[in-house]
């Protein structure tokens, strides 16, 4: 099977300009990361803040050029520093951001939000742009009358649906989702995760899903990469990583994640009761 996206030894440095007292320096945010995602699969990138997971997402989404390493999209090497990617390449990879309040232009009507990618990257006539935008609204569970509304008229979950719809307008093969549900309430999170699963089945989409929430990752991922301080410390299928985490950092991450298991709650409640009885 061919990989939709593949990265070899991806390195990313950020330049930190010097201030009045500090020297300019560079920070290595990614220290040589390898990955490969097959068509129709989901790679989850898990890590804490500062681990480099969003940096990697931006490299994969062709937003930032990596300092080193090779990125291949559908087998073709892509170097956005050397050649600006054309509409074809841009159409293949789309991104959904964390904060649906910040990623939509407050002055742009939803219809225009959805038609803009077509206007920029394709020669689709205006009437068809509109048709496709309306069809996409229905696909993500919104109504045709939402076409002429502004982002502020929608809830967080609806806005994230709009952002997903915008990303899908160009029929991409790869969707990079940077913490798409972490700004949403639990019940809305479930709806958006269901929507993503449906869309993946329908369009054969490949996802790169960045998250810090292990319970979400366990639900959605096929492959998991645990990233810490710019290095992929653990990589494997979801079953492997969750059943048998080998790296100490992964274990630490698992141990820190709160569990809602009834047996665990019973043990804790019992321990507290005993501690109290001991005090009295």
């Amino acid at each position: 099977m061919t990989a939709v996206v593949e990265g070899k030894a991806i390195v990313q440095d950020y330049h930190v300009p010097g201030g009045m007292f500090a020297r300019a320096r560079s920070v290595r945010a990614l220290k040589g990361v390898d990955f490969r995602v097959e068509k129709g699969k989901t790679l989850a990138i898990v890590g804490e803040s500062g681990s480099g997971k969003s940096t990697l997402a931006r490299v994969i989404a062709l937003i930032d050029a990596p300092t080193g390493g090779e990125l291949r999209i559908e087998g073709k090497p892509v170097d956005i520093r050397a050649h600006r990617p054309g509409p074809d390449m841009r159409s293949k990879v789309q991104m959904v951001f964390q904060n649906p309040y910040g990623s939509l232009n407050p002055r742009q009507k939803i219809g225009n939000v959805l038609m803009e990618p077509l206007a920029i990257n394709t020669n689709v006539p205006a009437a068809e742009q509109r048709e496709r935008a309306e069809a996409m609204l229905a696909k993500v569970g919104l109504q045709p009358e939402h076409f002429n509304r502004y982002p502020h008229m929608f809830s967080g979950g609806q806005r994230q649906r709009i952002a997903i719809a915008r990303a899908l307008m160009l029929n991409p093969s790869l969707l990079v989702l940077d913490e798409p549900v972490s700004a949403l309430d639990l019940s809305v999170q479930a709806q958006v995760l269901n929507l993503l699963a449906d869309l993946q089945d329908e369009f054969g989409l490949t996802y790169v899903f960045v998250s810090h929430d292990l319970s979400v990752v366990r639900y959605i991922a096929d492959e998991v990469m645990v990233i810490s301080k710019g290095e992929a410390v653990e990589q494997g299928t979801r079953e492997e990583v969750f059943a048998n985490p080998t790296h100490p950092y992964t274990r630490q991450l698992f141990a820190a994640t709160p569990v809602t298991d009834v047996a665990a709650i019973r043990t804790r409640v019992e321990r507290r009761r005993l501690a109290r009885a001991g005090v009295q």
């Binding site: 639990l186 019940s187 479930a190 269901n194 319970s215 979400v216 366990r218 959605i220 569990v259």
Partner: peptide, 11 residues
């Protein structure tokens, strides 16, 4: 709705 309590494919 907690993902860890998911049974089957849908939440």
């Amino acid at each position: 709705a907690l993902p860890e309590n998911a049974t089957g494919d849908r939440l």
